[in-house]
């Protein structure tokens, strides 16, 4: 039992960081009605920027700040130059645009830094605390704390601040919001800046956990999107739960055996499970996402 418990503890940071990425997706979707498939690209590229800065001899703290600044600028640039021109086009065009961004970041990173794993500079405390015989790394507690803090801040932002209410207004009806005096353009830009910051943070925290490779990080988009769908692209709380479920499943699967079949020996069993969950979440949450078939066509 404690073996599985240890696995769950190991899976916690992954789930938590998927929740962070998913929060970026939900926030951007709620404020600008764009489903950002490129969130993994932002995360990956930010991590590489920090890696590169550190390689050039920039101290870790400054490299961290520089990378996060890059993430914010990247978010703003994506919104300003790539998505704003598509505002009046069908939503699918914007989504394909984010796919293009995802591909471009992957290809650029593979070209610049290669597809092999690189070592991230260390930013988190080492050491562990012990609970009832189970060792919990301090870095994991650190990750959990940061993420919960960020997510609470996002919930607060949407519920109680003028900016959050403006974001929701702009996504509901841009024209009406503008007529009410909401600076729609600035609201979109701010959302994307924050979305970039969340994605970048997640990337920097994820890379020591799963390794700094272009493909490895880019595809973190998928579990993040799955969690966001579980939350109906609205609820931050449900998104968090969805991400934790995925994270725990991810780390438990390799520990499961059926007789002589050990799942850890089956290549890609985790990815296949996530894919099936994406489909399942879409099926289960379809009503919440759309309501009825007649309504979904208007999208």
């Amino acid at each position: 039992m404690s073996f599985y418990f240890q696995l769950i503890i190991l899976g916690l940071p992954i789930g938590v960081l998927w929740a962070l990425l998913a929060t970026s997706v939900v926030m951007i979707y709620r404020a600008s009605r764009v489903l950002n498939l490129a969130v993994g690209g932002t995360a990956m590229f930010t991590a590489y920027v920090m890696y590169q800065l550190n390689l050039w001899g920039v101290p870790v703290v400054l490299a961290l700040i520089g990378a996060l600044a890059f993430a914010v600028l990247f978010g703003i640039a994506t919104e300003r130059w790539l998505l704003r021109p598509l505002r009046d086009k069908p939503m699918l065009v914007s989504v394909i645009m984010t796919v293009g961004v995802l591909a471009l970041t992957t290809e650029l990173a593979s070209d610049r830094w290669g597809v092999d794993r690189q070592n991230m500079p260390r930013i988190m405390p080492s050491g562990a605390v012990h609970f009832a015989g189970i060792a919990v790394g301090l870095d994991r507690i650190f990750i959990l704390a940061i993420t919960l803090l960020v997510m609470a801040a996002v919930v607060y932002l949407f519920r109680y601040t003028t900016l959050g209410i403006s974001m929701r207004a702009v996504s509901d009806d841009r024209r009406a919001a503008q007529l009410m005096g909401v600076p729609a353009g600035r609201v979109s830009t701010t959302t994307w800046a924050l979305g970039g910051l969340l994605g970048g943070t997640a990337g920097i925290l994820l890379s020591p956990v799963i390794g700094l490779t272009p493909n490895g990080l880019v595809f973190q988009s998928i579990p993040a999107l799955a969690a966001a769908l579980f939350g109906g692209l609205v609820s931050i709380e449900l998104t968090f739960i969805g991400a934790m479920v995925l994270g725990v499943l991810w780390s438990l699967l390799p520990g499961i055996s059926f007789g002589s079949l050990h799942l850890r020996e089956v290549t890609g069993v985790q990815e296949a499970a996530i894919f099936l969950l994406v489909i399942a979440f879409l099926y289960v949450r379809w009503e919440a996402l759309f309501g009825s078939e007649l309504r979904e066509e208007e999208i």
């Binding site: 489903l35 699918l92 394909i96 999107l225 894919f275 996402l289």
Partner: peptide, 9 residues
């Protein structure tokens, strides 16, 4: 767009 996610996965 949801099919885009499903097929990406």
């Amino acid at each position: 767009l949801y099919l885009a996610i499903a097929t990406l996965a």
